[in-house]
């Protein structure tokens, strides 16, 4: 029985996983506390994590119908993320492990996103190509085996979700605007305007989203308020298409070059309707199977951290006592 804690960004999360059975997956979102700043404020996030963490852990135990004494392992996100936010989770996990005499394992947030694909209802098994796209990260990782990762591509600037949120903000939608942009775009014409796709060259699997965001800024400035108001849905659809096209084109190209017949998604952007539809079509026509975990396992959560912990050993004594947290770092390290 694993109790997992995840506090790397703006969601306070705890989950309990017993073998393959996810007994509880609690997420306390802080979004509304950050909305007025138009982005995640690290100090606000750190304060909220400390206020919420014990409540979220207690809730996970209650939902799972489990006593702390039954927990044999603690799993906690140690990297990458906001350092002040991470340390609340790590300090909490350490103290619970110490008090309960349980093992402790530090997990990479990115390995967690990948391992969300191993959870029910439709667990994937390697090899597969995983696209992690969220407000904080955008990476393509080839997963040859549970602990054998190869970085295929990553964003060189903004994350895909960040690009969608910023576009939404430029169009006057409230933070975090990704979902609202998706909704607005659904009634618009994606061919109305043309926005650039970053690093759009064969064989290049990295992403860049700062150009498309800048293009939207100048487009809106030059188009004039009246036109922007009248064609808002069309502009939203066109902008979203450029961001999503970059993801679809590169992940399909990477799968083909790796001769990989399975693609898995992770991260909040996998809720985007255009990404799901277009990637679904591309995969079907190429005989690639596409797996998308349910939304609550795609966005940040602790179930994915528990899932990843199943493939990791406990940190040894006494090193685990001095476990730290890091703002950077990815897989394996």
């Amino acid at each position: 029985m694993i109790l997992a804690i995840e506090t790397s960004c703006d969601d306070t999360c705890a989950a309990i996983l017993d073998g393959d059975n996810l007994l509880a997956n609690i997420v306390s979102s802080q979004t509304r506390f950050h909305a007025r700043y138009g982005g995640v404020v690290p100090e606000v996030a750190s304060r909220r994590h400390l206020e919420l963490i014990n409540l979220v852990v207690a809730e996970a135990l209650t939902v799972a119908g489990v006593e702390l004494g039954q927990i044999r392992r603690l799993a906690v996100t140690t990297r990458p993320g906001l350092i002040g936010a991470l340390l609340v989770g790590v300090a909490t996990a350490k103290a619970i492990a110490f008090a309960c005499g349980a093992g402790l394992v530090g997990v990479s947030h990115l390995e967690g996103h990948i391992a969300a694909n191993y959870l029910q209802p439709e667990p994937a098994s390697p090899p597969f190509l995983c696209l992690i796209a969220s407000g904080g990260h955008t990476s393509m990782i080839y997963v040859a085996a549970e602990r054998d990762f190869r970085l295929i591509g990553r964003t060189l600037d903004d994350a895909a979700g960040e690009a969608l949120d910023k576009g939404a903000r430029l169009l006057g939608l409230d933070y975090p605007g990704g979902a609202a942009l998706d909704a607005l775009a659904s009634s618009g014409d994606p061919a109305f305007a043309s926005f650039p796709i970053g690093l759009d060259r064969a064989g290049n699997f990295d992403f860049s989203f700062s150009g498309v965001k800048t293009a939207l800024y100048y487009y809106l400035r030059d188009a004039g308020a009246e036109m922007v108001q009248r064609r808002r849905a069309d502009i939203a659809a066109s902008y979203q298409k450029a961001v999503i096209s970059a993801l679809v084109k590169k992940v399909i190209a990477a799968a083909r070059s790796l001769n990989c017949s399975q693609i898995c998604l992770a991260g909040g952007v996998s809720a985007n309707t255009v990404l799901r539809r277009r990637l679904g079509q591309e995969c079907t026509s190429r005989g690639i199977s596409l797996r998308i975990p349910p939304p609550e396992l795609c966005t940040d959560n602790a179930a994915m951290i528990a899932s990843a912990a199943r493939f990791l050993p406990d940190a040894p004594h006494p090193e685990w006592l001095s476990m730290g947290a890091r703002a950077t770092g990815g897989l394996l390290v």
Binding site: C9, G39, V40, V41, L82, G135, R154, D157, G330
Partner: peptide
């Protein structure tokens, strides 16, 4: 908030 850099988790691999 004004003096705090808003979240930009860049290049999480490094």
């Amino acid at each position: 908030a004004d003096k705090t850099v808003l979240l930009r988790k860049r290049q999480p691999w490094q």
